[in-house]
Computed example of a mutant assay.
Amino acid sequence: MTFFHVVLVGMIIAAIGAVSWFVLPKGKNQTLLRSSILLTLTSCYLMWAITYLAQLHPLISPRRSDLRAEY
Rank of each mutant, 00 (worst) to 15 (best):
M1H: 06
F3N: 06
F4S: 03
V7C: 09
V7S: 13
V7K: 08
V7M: 15
V7N: 05
L8W: 10
L8K: 14
L8S: 11
L8V: 06
L8T: 09
V9C: 06
V9E: 03
G10A: 04
G10M: 00
I12R: 05
I12L: 11
I13T: 13
I13W: 02
I13K: 00
I13D: 01
A14G: 07
A14H: 03
A14I: 07
A15E: 01
A15K: 03
A15P: 00
I16N: 00
G17F: 04
G17N: 06
A18Y: 14
V19G: 06
S20M: 11
S20A: 15
S20K: 09
S20Y: 03
S20Q: 11
W21R: 06
W21D: 10
W21P: 00
W21C: 04
F22R: 04
F22W: 11
F22N: 06
F22Y: 15
F22P: 00
V23Y: 14
V23Q: 11
V23N: 10
L24K: 00
L24H: 01
P25R: 10
K26W: 05
G27E: 03
G27I: 00
G27P: 01
K28F: 09
K28P: 01
K28V: 07
N29V: 01
N29R: 09
N29A: 10
Q30F: 11
L32I: 06
L33N: 05
L33D: 04
L33I: 03
R34G: 00
R34N: 14
R34Y: 04
R34L: 14
S35R: 12
S35E: 12
S35I: 06
S35P: 01
S36V: 05
S36W: 06
S36L: 15
S36R: 05
S36C: 12
S36F: 15
I37S: 02
I37F: 12
L38Y: 09
L38V: 04
L39S: 14
L39K: 09
L39Y: 09
L39P: 02
T40H: 02
T40F: 15
T42Q: 04
T42D: 05
T42H: 05
C44N: 08
C44W: 12
C44E: 12
Y45L: 15
Y45R: 01
M47T: 12
M47A: 14
W48L: 03
A49F: 03
A49R: 10
A49N: 03
A49Y: 00
I50A: 14
I50H: 08
T51I: 08
T51C: 04
Y52Q: 03
L53H: 00
L53T: 02
A54T: 06
A54P: 01
A54Q: 12
A54W: 13
A54M: 10
Q55M: 13
L56H: 10
L56N: 08
L56C: 04
H57D: 07
P58Y: 05
P58Q: 02
P58R: 01
I60Q: 10
I60P: 01
I60D: 05
I60T: 08
I60G: 00
S61E: 13
P62R: 02
P62V: 07
S65D: 10
D66A: 04
L67M: 14
A69F: 12
A69I: 11
A69H: 08
E70H: 11
E70C: 15
Y71L: 15
